[in-house]
Amino acid sequence: MAIEVRDVNKSFGTTPVLRDVSIDVKSGSLTALLGPSGGGKSTLLRVIAGLEQPDTGTVRISGVDATRLSPQRRNVGFVFQHYAAFKHLTVFRNVAFGLEIRKRPKDEIRKRVMELLELVHLEQMADRYPSQLSGGQRQRMALARALAVEPEVLLLDEPFGALDAQVRKELRTWLRRLHDEVHVTTVFVTHDQEEAIEVADTIVVLADGEVKQVGSPAEVYDNPADPFVMRFLGPVTEIGGNLVRPHDIEISAGPVEGGTAATVSRVVRLGFEVRVELTVEGRDAWVQVTRGFAEQLALTPGDVVNVRPAPGARSLTLAAV
């Protein structure tokens, strides 16, 4: 294991922020810490980096107990949401920082920094200052800077959170490819489930300071541990006291086995997909179908149809309220 967090508790004042958190991060993996804002993701990441001290519990990095080690000695790479670029240093000097601290020979530093700048596609920007870069470029610089010292683990706190949607998507794909190239154990924080599912090979769902579930993106999406995780990872709707994914529901014109009668209240076309809003047993629900399917059934508001979970669909029974 590259990172082992055991029974970590952390409070700010009287507010508990992490509660008995234990996670294992496999060497070479790309793990997402996913959860709603305020859930303690940043705090956990900062505890791993040594930027916060846990009240109780331990952190081991590459098998070594790092709980009492200062961040200076943990050899972790940390990338901040707002880049934390050294404003008074050029891109080259930013990336060289960790190597200069380690007093590496000048020509070795030059070689390594230029390699890294090539890796993050900033070789043309070496002599610029951070203020002359775009947000995406600054974040790539920050990444190169963190990678320069060959960290045991790379920690990224909402690395794309401050970027606009387009750049965000590009960088996501790019991070995945970079990880396939560099293989450094990476943990990144995000509150965007799509980002976590697309980029990570393991997802840790953290909410209210507790680990709710750990698993591959498919596991967490298909077999959510509880209604909270199910809701957080994707769209859900409620039919017959069960929480179901809206694309996991079948609509048929006639009665079917295990089906429930429903009245169509609205049909919304969203390009390729169609969102069918229904009333089932007096409650609002919705189903996602393809455009072709909606046209085939000629669904219009007021129609009475039958709905049932598709075979193999995952659903969670909600406790009766």
């Binding site: 930027l51 961040p71 943990r74 934390a84 050294f86 920082f97 601290i101 920050a142 963190a146």
Partner: peptide, 15 residues
């Protein structure tokens, strides 16, 4: 944050 980044890159308090 810049100071924290420097720490994680191995810099001492004085550095």
């Amino acid at each position: 944050e810049q100071e924290q980044a420097a720490h994680t890159l191995g810099a001492s308090r004085l550095q």
